[in-house]
Design a binder for these strands. Structure first.
Length: 577
RNA sequence: CGGGAUGUAGCGCAGCUUGGUAGCGUACCUCGCUUGGGACGAGGGGGUCGCAGGUUCAAAUCCUGUCAUCCCGACCA
């Protein structure tokens, strides 16, 4: 490819709306062009990168025994009603009507479709196991798309679905996929951590995420991990052992009584007013889960993890209650308390979920739904009834102890580039997708699903590999392997050498760009760095010694080589892929 | 959905307070000069100032509405 013909425009400045490195770099270097929030055109350079990521994914999936197919992007409502997700999925599901007023949606994921496809084909245990995958655009109408390709609304995803006759088969395939994923990300030049996670709206029991660890905002997930053993988990799923704490208030409270605690709206104010550690306060929070109020109880120095709470309540949507909703609920139950004085007592008919931390507490402080008052010296029997659900709904904090080995946990940010789920019969059962076993009995398939964000993986690679001058693409997914820069295109010798190297590389199958633009060297070097070609060969002043410069973008290493040596170096590097 | 901000040339921005012929940088075109880290000079093309109303002799500028985009928040009572 001649640079003069390459469809790309690099910018002198970063796009003003970009926040994170990958968005800034990909925008400035002309890889992507925004059409609408979270919707981008992949320009030729980007598309080359994406195709490379896709092909690595394809090769490893095929090698792992999966088969590629392609399912529709526009999907009918009926299938989503079968699985029950038409109601459940919420606004993230982009819905539309066709000309006959039929409800359709844009595919955010394909469990329904693949289940509908396989149930007509996979009838016998003899046909199982099967793993099917596709690579295509998905659409999820995110509340707030941002960070460029890291959280787009339209994005490219590889989604795979496995079908087995039993849990053992699923376990095996799950491991198989985990291995394939490890290989895929390694080949893409990305170091990933496989962490335990919540299975979210997709559903199912066990799941893991593949995280690219980053210390920037681009990592939207908190990952807790142990340095002593291999425990690691997304914050929405992490568990921990707690260090010892003061949880018995007998030194502070001789007896159970109601105390005036004026203006103690926050835990901080309350613990200061009573001169007690916050570990002696039982915090009561009101959430709205699937449109119904739920009370969450937790030791006040700890934070509720909403996903855990939602799961404990068996819900699929959660948010904290508004002041207005709290007031409404209080009125309904005959109280007048403001937020800050809420407690579980008298909340009949409301689902109450208590964190495990609550069960260790003695002689503690709790709200009793009266403004400016708290009950002190209280015990479990004063606040908990049989109805209360005990669950771990606590957000882990760094410094708490590893659930497996007891050593301190650390936290870091991660970009989720892949995930694997054990679905079990979550879709096969409601959608009546069954096979017949050796005894003639029918059973729902045991399913798994496995996703990789293709476009997000490419963006994550930029997050992981760049410097202040631009992108440092890993060779395996770079849009081109190399660029050749004749410093002055009017210099016949330089052009002759450059063109010779160009044609030799081309015929060896190297993807190479010849920067034949009538620009000064600085412009070409800046663009080469920005775009991130792994190798740059410069034909310039060193030609007087019969040498060219070969610069390695990843390391900034610059070698003076003969043209033949430079060609060989690049061909060898590409061969190793 | 709540809060804040911004919409002016492909990109980045000024002008708006105090209404009076739309500017700068970059990018693009032409010529000259230059050629190892985003040179320089001269000339040139490109904008219904987000959209719709209103006020006014006159609106990018003031008023009303609307649409869009970005950021923060959606949380620990």
């Amino acid at each position: 490819m001649k640079m003069s013909k390459l469809f790309v425009q690099t910018l002198r400045e970063f796009p003003s709306d970009a926040e994170v490195v990958s968005h800034k770099m990909l925008g400035r270097a002309g890889f992507i062009k925004k059409l609408a929030p979270g919707v981008y055109t992949y320009m030729p350079l980007m598309w080359r990168v994406l195709k490379k990521v896709e092909n690595i994914v394809r090769e490893e999936m095929d090698r792992a025994g999966a088969q590629e197919l392609l399912m529709p992007f526009v999907q009918p409502k009926e299938l989503w009603e079968e699985s029950g997700r038409w109601e459940v999925y919420g606004k993230e599901l982009m819905r539309l009507k066709d000309r006959h007023d039929r409800d359709m949606c844009l595919g955010p994921t394909h469990e329904e479709i693949i289940t509908a496809v396989t149930r007509d084909v996979l009838k016998s245990y003899k046909q199982l196991p099967v793993n099917l995958y596709q690579i295509q655009s998905k659409f999820r109408d995110e509340i707030r798309p941002r960070y460029g390709l890291l959280r787009g609304r339209e994005f490219i995803m590889k989604d795979a679905y496995s079908f087995d006759i039993d849990e053992a088969g699923l376990d095996k395939e799950y491991q198989n996929m985990a291995q394939a994923y490890k290989k895929i990300f390694e080949r893409c030049g990305l170091a990933t951590k496989m962490v335990q996670s919540d299975s979210g709206a997709i559903g199912g029991s066990v799941s893991h995420e593949f995280m690219v660890i980053t210390d920037t905002d681009a990592g939207e997930n908190d990952v807790f991990y142990c340095n002593e053993c291999d425990y690691s988990a997304n914050s929405n799923h992490a568990i921990s052992k707690l260090p010892p704490a003061t949880v018995d208030g007998k030194e502070y409270f001789k007896e159970k009584k109601i105390l005036d605690t004026p203006h103690t709206h926050s835990i901080e104010e309350l613990s200061e007013f009573l001169k007690i550690p916050s570990t002696l306060i039982l915090k009561s929070l009101i959430y709205i889960i699937d449109k119904k109020p739920v009370i969450a109880l937790i030791r006040a120095d700890k934070t509720v993890e909403e996903t855990k709470l939602m799961n404990a309540a068996g819900g699929i949507d959660i948010r904290i209650a508004t002041a207005g909703e709290i007031e409404e609920l209080m009125q309904e139950k005959g109280f007048t308390a403001e937020a800050g004085f809420i407690g579980p007592n008298g909340m009949n008919g409301i689902k109450i979920i208590a964190d495990e931390t609550v069960y260790d507490m003695k002689n503690f402080v709790v709200g009793i739904n009266q403004t400016d008052k708290h009950l002190v010296g209280a015990n479990l029997e004063d606040v908990l009834t049989d109805e209360v659900i005990k669950a771990d709904i606590r957000l882990v904090e760094a410094g708490e102890l590893c659930p497996e080995c007891g050593k301190p946990l650390f936290v870091t940010k991660g970009i989720e580039v892949g995930n694997i789920f054990k679905l079990g019969t979550k879709y096969s059962k409601p959608m009546n997708a069954v096979y017949t076993d050796i005894n003639g009995q029918t059973h729902p398939y045991i399913m798994g699903c496995y996703g990789i964000g293709i476009s997000r993986t490419a963006a994550a690679a930029v997050e992981a590999h760049h410097d202040e001058h631009g992108i440092k693409w890993p060779l395996a997914i770079a849009p081109y392997h190399a660029v050749i820069v004749p410093v002055n295109i009017l210099d016949e010798q330089q052009m002759k050498v450059a063109e010779k190297i160009y044609s030799e590389l081309l015929s060896a199958g190297v993807e190479v760009v010849l920067d034949d633009r009538d620009e000064r060297a600085g412009v070409k070097f800046k663009d080469a760095d920005l775009i991130g070609f792994p190798f740059r060969i410069t034909a310039g002043k060193t030609l007087s010694e019969g040498l060219v410069e070969c610069k390695v973008r990843a390391t900034d290493e610059a070698l003076k080589l003969t043209p033949d040596e430079a060609v060989k170096k690049i061909i060898d590097a590409v061969k190793e892929l």
